[in-house]
């Protein structure tokens, strides 16, 4: 009973906040819809710019900054070749992540993203950065899981890291398959707090599970 009241209360609070900021939620919803059509660095930059614009207006909301950083991290993966360019995108992502950490220090999503960001830094030059950034990435995802052990994106990033290092060190990554299946099976149990909260990652989890078969 208590739980139901809590759920209703949370829903009400959400609805009130949505009602108070219809333009914010509408714009965020539309902009999030554009993810699906992004392919190139320029696409993601345009989308990231849009989130940056929203973040400039909504100083109290962490999600626009989150997606801004997310877009610029993706850009570093999409970019072919030039390490200096990759780093310049990640410099932009870093600015938003630093703000996010200060703004929402108890949000598991933020630290999951931070872990993803460190992995992107690592990928630019694995030989040079492997040691430092794998530790930082592991630490950030550890923080995310400590804040919310059920967060599927934090679990996904941890799983990807573990499987990656198993592959690198010549061990069988398939030992993590039961974990992957469990993650996918329970993915939808996690309910984002609002419709604009991060919801990505399920298709990646599906990809891992497919790779297990």
């Amino acid at each position: 009973m208590k739980k139901i009241i809590l759920v209703i209360a949370v829903l009400l609070v959400n609805m009130v906040s949505i009602a108070q900021k219809p333009e914010f939620f509408q714009t965020m919803g539309e902009t999030l819809g554009q993810y699906a059509s992004c392919r190139t660095v320029a696409d993601f930059q345009a989308l990231g710019n849009k989130f940056q614009m929203i973040a400039n207006v909504e100083k109290a909301e962490w999600s626009p900054l989150y997606y801004h950083a997310h877009c610029f991290i993706i850009m570093s993966f999409v970019e072919q070749g030039d390490a200096v360019k990759k780093d310049s995108y990640l410099d932009e992502a870093e600015k938003s992540i630093d703000k996010l950490v200060a703004m929402a220090p108890n949000e598991a999503e933020v630290f999951a993203l931070q872990s993803f960001y460190y992995t992107a830094r690592l990928v630019v030059n694995p030989m040079e950065r492997g040691q430092k950034y794998s530790a930082l990435s592991g630490q950030a995802v550890g923080k995310a899981l400590a804040l919310d052990p059920t967060n599927p994106r934090a679990r996904l990033i941890k799983l990807q890291g573990d499987m990656g290092s198993a592959r690198f060190f010549g061990q069988d990554p398939k030992t993590f398959c039961p974990q992957a299946k469990e993650l996918l099976a329970t993915w939808d149990n996690f309910k984002p707090k609002s419709p604009i909260d991060p919801a990505w990652g399920k298709d990646q989890a599906e990809g891992i599970v497919k790779g297990c078969q």
Partner: peptide, 19 residues
């Protein structure tokens, strides 16, 4: 210059420049 962010300050209205 591609990828520049053009917008009206204090609003959500804006876009990025193309190639």
């Amino acid at each position: 210059m591609a990828g520049a962010n053009a917008y009206l300050k204090g609003t959500y209205d804006g876009t990025s420049s193309n190639e």
